[in-house]
């Protein structure tokens, strides 16, 4: 496969994690402009563990998820009283704080005679686990899509479970959820933590493919895109945000010729789409219709077979 195609596919896969992270929060009724912070925490934490302390990526990944998940749960706990726009602004403020902390942080250790570790605005370099172990971009492709497959499977199971119903109920009407005896506070913190851990997976892969990450990688642009993925692709299914990533990255690739103006055109298209499809392409109604049609076809086939 062409290296360029692999890079694009790796980007789509990597962004899918942060898209699913923002989607999970959207399901619970919260709009976050700050998921890039947890993507960044995942990138830095995993990168530091492999580059500075020689851990394997496969151990650094779950540890980075735990670090990021705990940070996200803490933010979720602190912002429990905030709703709507206030919550969105608080998440954005947190993300900017994380970015500025990364700019101000310098902590380096010597590895093979080289200083390794976060170096302020110069970022965290020498994340060479993939390079040193001769992992090619195509190997990361399998790693990313394998992990994404597992995450999607967990999403499908969750959406059919009691937890999924609770999250959607909280998202639809928090007061109604409370009157039904749901411990909204506990579930909100749980969702925030899970969303943080999810974003960290994307960040960890990004850091190990790029080998160097900078604080500015995790600025508001990434946060806006991660939110837009779910809103474009649709909130009816976990496939929605991934469709959003596909359309975004695919669109940017297709209109390469308009260069620096691509983002402006993309922003306009998103605005138009949201006017006509406020809950995205694969919204709850379309997914329900699709499921009903598929169930009807399956039942007709079963009856047909029984009749014969």
């Amino acid at each position: 496969m062409d290296d360029h195609v692999i890079t694009v596919l790796n980007n789509i896969g990597g962004f899918s994690f942060i898209a699913l992270s923002a989607y999970l929060l959207l399901l619970s009724g919260e709009i976050s402009f700050g998921q890039q912070a947890f993507y960044g925490i995942g990138a830095y934490a995993s990168g530091m563990m492999t580059a500075m302390f020689g851990l394997s990526f496969w151990l650094a990944l779950p540890l980075a998820m735990i670090v990021s998940g705990l940070a996200a749960a803490a933010v979720g706990g602190l912002t429990l009283r905030l709703r709507g726009l206030y919550f969105a602004i608080a998440t954005l403020a947190f993300a900017e704080t994380v970015r500025l902390i990364l700019v101000a942080t310098t902590w380096q250790v010597e590895v093979d005679g080289e200083p390794v570790g976060p170096n302020g605005s110069e970022g965290l370099g020498n994340i060479r686990w993939g390079f040193d172990n001769e992992y090619e971009p195509v190997d990361f492709l399998w790693m990313i899509y394998g992990t994404l497959g597992i995450v999607l499977l967990l999403f499908f199971l969750m959406e059919r479970s009691r937890l999924g119903s609770i999250i959607r109920t909280i998202g639809a009407d928090r007061l109604l959820a409370e009157t039904q005896g749901i411990a909204v506070t506990r579930y909100k913190i749980l969702v925030a933590g899970l969303a943080g851990a999810l974003a960290a997976i994307g960040g960890a892969f990004y850091a190990h493919i790029q080998t160097t990450v900078y604080p500015e990688n995790f600025d508001v642009m990434l946060g806006v895109h991660s939110l837009a993925y779910g809103l474009i692709g649709g909130l009816g299914t976990a496939v929605g945000p991934i469709l959003g990533v596909l359309l975004d990255v695919g669109f940017l690739e297709a209109v390469e010729w308009i260069q620096g103006y691509r983002m402006i055109v993309f922003g306009g298209l998103v605005a138009v789409l949201l006017i006509f499809m406020p809950r995205g392409i694969l919204d709850e109604r379309r997914i329900h219709r699709l499921r009903t049609a598929l169930r009807g076809r399956r039942q007709a086939r079963t009856h047909g077979a029984a009749g014969a």
């Binding site: 890079t7 500015e216 990688n217 600025d219 990255v249 983002m263």
Partner: peptide, 16 residues
């Protein structure tokens, strides 16, 4: 050599 813009990670998929 592969260029990437740090403020827009992955947005400019310029070929190496």
């Amino acid at each position: 050599v592969k260029p990437d813009m740090p403020t827009m990670p992955g947005a400019h998929n310029i070929r190496a």
